[in-house]
Design a binder for these strands. Structure first.
Lengths: 196, 196
DNA sequence: CCTACCGATCGGTAGG
DNA sequence: CCTACCGATCGGTAGG
């Protein structure tokens, strides 16, 4: 019978992952060494290599865990009841919550995707594509004449609005993430000219 | 009398700058070495250091040249004739043209700002702030009740839409930058629900 | 004989 | 403006 692994194996791995997300968000993937990560976790470099075979595996885990959470939320909302308009509103609020709750992972996903080896990058990009398709379909329900040429650009403009918040939105600031989500989806659906 | 510098001094500097923008956009600032840059320019590392005292100086030049061009375009349009709505439309089209014309610089500006030393980063961020304030004032003209709390978030959501295009917009693709600019500013002003 | 982990150091390459 | 180098640090692995 095989020996079981340490009972806190997953906890330690999760702790390294979270610290890596923070470091890569602050200093960039190439700017944060394995030695930096080990020091931040107060463990040896060898322990880090016990959990991850290579530095790129850590980056992949940071990105994959985040994008997976986004897709699950997206699919849950898309398959629910209600109209496309209501679903897009709910999606925007839940995405904004995920973005601020996983701010480091989100920043790393947006800034360091090119640093991922091609095979693993494809996996992340595929999940992103499903997320985009999901929003695209909602937009086609709201505006059927958009389908084909402009539904994808429109979906990308939507993601630009909400993804970009990581550069300026302060979760502790006067304007809350929920207010920003409401403003973003209102502008996207009805424009800034229409009073909220 | 001081010796004059080489007559093609500025051309060579500009060539190094453009190559640096490309390399930093592709591999990241930390992923592209001075040796890589010299090889791409087919010059020695020492020649690069003849034009730039440090690696960060090149990064600053890449970012500063781009953000300066954006601000000049923004101020020219803002100080012109016409209403705020027309100015925002013109601004969006001209920004999109600048973004695709300086795609590498734009990507570097958005992805590598944290890699700039604090003092030089402040200079770039200050210029960005003036650009944001300019859009903010246009939005306050369009929607006076937005002023104060929500005009800055609204301006940031606008920039999210158009800045983020660098990740997905193909200048050679079926949908042109001008069409994307038109779609973005239409959505922002009147929403996706209103037929274009 | 296994796993989980340590201190030390490998061959190469970075900016300057 | 080049070749020849430097101090330091990189990602990854050795023995025990």
């Amino acid at each position: 019978m095989a020996r079981t692994q340490s009972p806190d194996y997953e906890d330690r791995r999760a702790a390294i992952l979270e610290e890596a997300a923070k470091l890569y968000a602050e200093r960039g993937f190439l700017g944060a060494s394995i030695a930096d990560l080990a020091a931040a976790c107060q463990v040896s470099k060898s322990l880090v290599y016990h959990y991850y075979a290579a530095k790129e595996d850590i980056l992949f885990d940071v990105m994959q865990s985040h994008v997976q959470a986004l897709l699950e939320t997206g699919e849950r909302i898309a398959s629910g009841d209600g109209g496309a308009r209501e679903k897009l509103i709910a999606l925007t609020h839940e995405f904004m919550q995920l973005y601020v709750g996983a701010a480091s992972r989100h920043k790393v996903l947006l800034n360091e995707l090119d640093r991922l080896p091609a095979d693993r990058r494809r996996i992340v990009v595929d999940i992103q594509r499903r997320l985009i398709a999901l929003v695209e379909h909602l937009l086609e329900e709201i505006r059927p004449d958009l389908a084909g040429r402009l539904s994808r650009p429109a979906a990308m403009l939507y993601f630009g609005m909400i993804n970009w918040t990581h550069t300026w939105l302060d979760p502790e600031g006067a304007v809350t993430p929920d207010e920003i989500a409401a403003l973003a989806v209102t502008i996207f659906l009805d424009g800034i000219c229409k009073p909220t």
